[in-house]
Design a protein around this nucleic acid. Sequence first.
DNA 1: CTGAAAGCGCTTACAG
DNA 2: CTGAAAGCGCTTACAG
Lengths: 328, 328
Amino acid sequence: MREVAEEANVSIATVSLVVNDKKNARIGKEARRRVNEAIEKLGYRPNALAKSLVSGSSRFIGLVADAIATTPFAGQIIHGAQDEAWKHGYVLLVANTEGDPEVTDDAINMMVDHQAIGILYSTWYHREIERPAALGSTPTVFVNCYTNEASETAVVPDEEQGGYTATSLLTRKGHQRIAFLNSTEDAPSTVGRLAGYRRALADAGLPFDPSLVLDVTPEQEGGYRATTGVLDRADRPTAVFCYNDRVAMGLYDGVKERGLRIPNDLAVVGFDDQEVIAAHLRPTLTSVALPQYELGVRGVRALLAALDGDPHPGVQRITCPPALRHSI
Amino acid sequence: MREVAEEANVSIATVSLVVNDKKNARIGKEARRRVNEAIEKLGYRPNALAKSLVSGSSRFIGLVADAIATTPFAGQIIHGAQDEAWKHGYVLLVANTEGDPEVTDDAINMMVDHQAIGILYSTWYHREIERPAALGSTPTVFVNCYTNEASETAVVPDEEQGGYTATSLLTRKGHQRIAFLNSTEDAPSTVGRLAGYRRALADAGLPFDPSLVLDVTPEQEGGYRATTGVLDRADRPTAVFCYNDRVAMGLYDGVKERGLRIPNDLAVVGFDDQEVIAAHLRPTLTSVALPQYELGVRGVRALLAALDGDPHPGVQRITCPPALRHSI
DNA sequence: CTGAAAGCGCTTACAG
DNA sequence: CTGAAAGCGCTTACAG
């Protein structure tokens, strides 16, 4: 900057003024030209760090994740957060903690030290967590997780609506007996999707039959092993809502081994919309998508809003949209 | 810092000295104690940005990617880069360009402005690219891509070795006729894996039969449609090396429809080691992994080495390790 | 319309 | 052993 000032024969204050295009302070056309010329010539780029030092606030948003790439989903949160941050002129600092509390503290401190204006704290699967102590009073938005304090801001998928959407896809096709292969795990997804399933049945005027809800390990193997439970009964269901796409994938195998056809003999809906599975099964799998990208976007928005003096404490639930394919 | 100094009744210089634990300058035990006490009491954290300003170099490494989460792989590069950067006390700045040249320039400039010490430029699939002009003279390492200039540093998967490894898995099991469902796309992976396939056959004393190499669209559908070409011939191969796991997934479907069994009637090896597919097919799929995490790690190391005055220009090829399962 | 000066939070010789 | 001073690259009142 000093060099630019010398080259243009003005003071560094003037350079600063033209670089930042300050409205009130008016600079002579000639001086402005000289400055721009010098900038061009010297390839001058302002030091964003020095800028932050004086302004007292940086353009950094920190994202700490307990897993960056354990699942295909985690990446989408980063992606959404990055895009939205970028749109507002912020850069994303990312840190991966692998779930280690010590690393988490280090990561948070590192971001605070670098004057991040706030932190997005995210988990790779939807769950309740404790607010890490290292956060101190740093503005924080929890993404894909939440704490038990009402004053915190969190953004999570709307599991209940997701379960409702999945089940409704089936009831609308006229199915009367719909099984639900739920997960054995105790998580917001398990509880929420079940609630959505029940509400969809009720809305369609269908009875809730507990025997149609089977808890399986939420993987291909679980779905495969559940085939018997689903099919070997007098009042065999005509459709199945699977906790996730991997369960559906296993169920496909079981159904096919018996020579039955999807969707004619059994309609199937998955959850997660894992493209690599859902779009490539035969037939392709209708699913309900986790709004991971959107979670990242909304997380950044919530953080920026809070910093703008317009906080939205509480849990925001983001819609899980249906992904229609050929299994129903 | 000033507050800490006042609280401890010393100068800010002294605070700086104890915070950074400077060896040569010796501080009295008593003063040191008072300073640490004040730091504790005030919850003082040093401003890393101010530090960078005076030292002239930050602790940022920039990662610009053309896709953060289009595939499950891209995330692993970030993951590896983040872990390795972290290990050396650096923070990762990430930017997603969606392949847009303008966004790419903005992203690079943003990182340069924030005094990133260097940039990792990565692509989501292995390919040749042009060095973005905005990089200027910023130290850069290309990850999962490379330019045509020998002076640049690049880190990519060793496709040839990967193809060799995949094929050798089969020759070692005694297979004599091994088909290769290669991709129709023109890319380093296509060329490299074919070369590896040929070398493995040669090393096993097997002839190269061009009619056993079929080019398919590198997806499930391509693999499925290739079933006929693989099986309907007098000298039917006993094993198939598939360009990627999705092709293998499609081939599985085709093979199963004919009532044949894997691996007894046909052994199959995939590529990419996409866990969500490979670990969940029936039988589970033996594959060769893309070393994405390692690419990120090595990218950071190469960058740090270059900055340390020990550059390694040229293309580093990283081993693609086998992932043994039950399809051979 | 433009420059000199103070200050953002820190580090580093240099005195004492 | 410790403090005063200069300086990192910038911005922002304040003069003129």
